[in-house]
Amino acid sequence: MLGIYGGGGLLGAIAATRLHRHFSPRAVIIGVNWVWVALLPLFAVAGAPWQLGLIGAATAFVGPMWNVVIGTYTTTLVPNELLGRVNSVSMTLSWGVLPIGSLAAGYLLDRAGPTGAVWALSGFMLLTAVLATASRAVRHAPPLVSARTPADAER
């Protein structure tokens, strides 16, 4: 199960290096959230470990696209003198909530069981996707200008 899941993440990382050029940051932010909304409830109905692995692989496949696009977007738009601070805050927020998520997952598993925990996570993901879709900041985010090479600048 975990091997299949990891394979999805590995394939997603390979694909993200090529695919990220074809999608706007807005499309990735909104799209990845909705992909997760569609996939997470499947964990509640999967009956076999290999099914859990395939669902996990699909969720892990789109994760690297999110990481590449958000990282590129941040690096491109944030002024160099602020990049260290912005990345520090971003990493503190994104990695800092992991222990809280683990604690919440343990609580949900204890109180609601595995199926209830999956449905609670699915509901939270639905809320996140709706907020991302409705967000004015996301909908009106400036597009990334494709990187120019030194040879392009000479033309």
Score class of each variant (00 low, 15 high):
Gly3Met: 10
Tyr5Thr: 14
Gly7Phe: 09
Gly7Ser: 12
Gly7Val: 00
Gly9Trp: 14
Leu10Arg: 07
Leu11Trp: 11
Ala13Leu: 08
Ile14His: 11
Ala15Asn: 07
Thr17Gly: 14
Arg18Ala: 06
Leu19Ser: 09
His20Leu: 09
His20Tyr: 08
His20Met: 15
His20Arg: 07
His22Glu: 10
His22Gln: 10
His22Thr: 13
His22Leu: 14
Phe23Asn: 03
Arg26His: 11
Val28Glu: 00
Val32Thr: 12
Val35Phe: 08
Val37Ser: 14
Val37Asn: 10
Leu40His: 06
Pro41Val: 01
Pro41Gly: 02
Phe43Asn: 02
Phe43Asp: 00
Ala46Ile: 07
Gly47Thr: 15
Trp50Ile: 12
Gln51Gly: 11
Gln51Tyr: 09
Ile55Gly: 01
Ile55Tyr: 07
Ile55Thr: 05
Gly56Ile: 10
Gly56Met: 05
Ala57Ile: 13
Ala58Tyr: 09
Ala60Ile: 11
Phe61Gly: 04
Phe61Tyr: 12
Pro64Ser: 06
Pro64Ile: 03
Met65Ile: 14
Asn67Glu: 02
Leu77Ala: 00
Leu77Asn: 05
Leu77Gln: 12
Val78Cys: 00
Glu81Cys: 04
Leu82His: 06
Leu82Ala: 01
Gly84His: 13
Arg85Glu: 12
Val86Tyr: 14
Val86Gly: 15
Asn87Val: 00
Ser88Leu: 04
Ser88Glu: 03
Val89Ser: 03
Ser90Met: 12
Thr92Pro: 05
Ser94Gln: 09
Gly96Tyr: 13
Gly96Thr: 05
Leu98Tyr: 15
Ser102Ile: 15
Gly106Val: 04
Leu108Ala: 09
Leu109Asp: 10
Leu109Tyr: 14
Ala112Glu: 15
Gly113Cys: 13
Pro114Phe: 15
Gly116Val: 01
Ala117Lys: 09
Trp119Asp: 00
Leu121Ala: 09
Leu121Ile: 15
Ser122Asp: 02
Ser122Lys: 03
Met125Asn: 00
Leu127His: 07
Leu127Phe: 08
Ala132Asn: 07
Thr133Asn: 01
Ser135Cys: 04
Ser135Asn: 00
Arg136Glu: 01
Arg136Met: 04
Arg136Asn: 06
Arg139Trp: 04
His140Gln: 13
Ala141Asp: 03
Pro143Phe: 01
Val145Thr: 08
Val145Asp: 03
Ser146Thr: 12
Ala147Leu: 10
Ala147Glu: 12
Thr149Ala: 03
Pro150Arg: 09
Pro150His: 05
Asp152Ile: 02
Ala153Asn: 14
